[in-house]
Computed example of a mutant assay.
Amino acid sequence: MPTLLFDYGGTLDSDARHWNYVLRDGFTKAAIEHPALAQLDTDTWRAAYVHGERALAQHPIILPEDDFATLLHKKVTLEVEHLCTEGGFQFSAEERESIVDIVATYCDTQARHTTLRARKVLDILVTRGYDFVLVTNFYGNIRAVLQGYGLLDLFPRIVESATVGVRKPDPAIWQLGIDLAQRAPQDCIAIGDAFGKDIAPAHALGCKTIWFRGEEWTPKSVDESIPTHIIEDLSELLTLLP
């Protein structure tokens, strides 16, 4: 029975939609109460998203005990501040707080619903005898996030970029997952939504791979012969993994 090496963000919490799209939907929802946001264009939004990502990666903003709702509030605050300082939007402090609450609540709700569905798939895989290792780019708080969404008990073995000091797409982070599994690469199946960060590096190490194909940051042509399997819904794992 192979060990399943799961990615987290995108794969288990957003149905293979890059998180910039989920957050963008949150801002669209916030535009109902804050109509100026209806003018938010894709380039301005993406610049704010990248700003938030870089700030979280470079500064100790996220604490180990932060659940995903807390992470979202911090992340969206950075994005809204960037929209005001660099994107031309003018919101009062009260309006900024309202926007952050709307967006963060929307995204947390989406993630909670998605991880609940993922949990049902994972539980069935456990009953079939599969064991898991989580391999994720995250901020040092993945255990708190998993705890908040009721997934922590499924992943006693975790490789988190902020903790191990290596990030995808570096194959070394997947090698750490293989090492934790204490299996040969060919006895591991890597499952992720990002072709370049998950599938290509795990394949290069000799793992079998399952690409959860969805809405990536930038549509691109890839060699679809590389993944062992391609799925478009997490529940398809139940057919592929008897």
Rank of each mutant, 00 (worst) to 15 (best):
D13S: 10
A57R: 15
T209G: 05
A204F: 08
C107M: 12
S235R: 04
A184D: 13
S221F: 09
L134Q: 06
H229M: 04
Q186I: 14
L40C: 02
A144T: 12
I231S: 10
Q39M: 09
I189T: 09
V100W: 08
T3C: 12
E94K: 13
I199K: 05
D25A: 15
G140Q: 06
F212I: 15
E95N: 06
V166I: 11
L125Q: 01
C107T: 14
A111W: 01
G9S: 14
V145K: 01
V100H: 01
E224Y: 09
E86P: 00
L4T: 03
L40R: 00
D66F: 06
V164R: 07
L154S: 01
P185L: 04
D43W: 04
R213T: 12
H113N: 12
H51C: 04
L4E: 07
P169R: 07
Y21K: 09
T42R: 14
C188K: 05
A200Y: 10
D41W: 02
H113L: 07
K197H: 13
L134K: 03
R17F: 03
G88N: 08
A118M: 04
A38K: 07
F68E: 12
A204G: 13
R167N: 11
E95Y: 05
G165K: 09
L154H: 03
D223E: 05
K120H: 15
G140N: 05
D43F: 04
G140L: 11
V76G: 01
T42A: 14
E79T: 06
D179H: 07
T209M: 02
F212P: 10
Q175E: 11
A118Q: 10
D108P: 02
D198P: 08
L122Q: 04
I158V: 15
L12V: 10
L78V: 02
R46N: 15
L12T: 02
R167G: 02
Y130Q: 05
F195C: 09
V80E: 03
T228M: 07
T3I: 15
N141Q: 05
L122R: 06
L146S: 10
T70H: 13
L152Y: 09
I61K: 01
L205F: 15
P242K: 12
G177H: 03
L152I: 12
V164N: 07
V80A: 04
A16V: 11
Y149T: 09
Y8G: 08
K120Q: 14
H51E: 03
T70G: 12
A200I: 12
I102W: 02
E53C: 10
V100N: 00
E232D: 13
Q39F: 06
K75I: 06
P242V: 15
K168H: 08
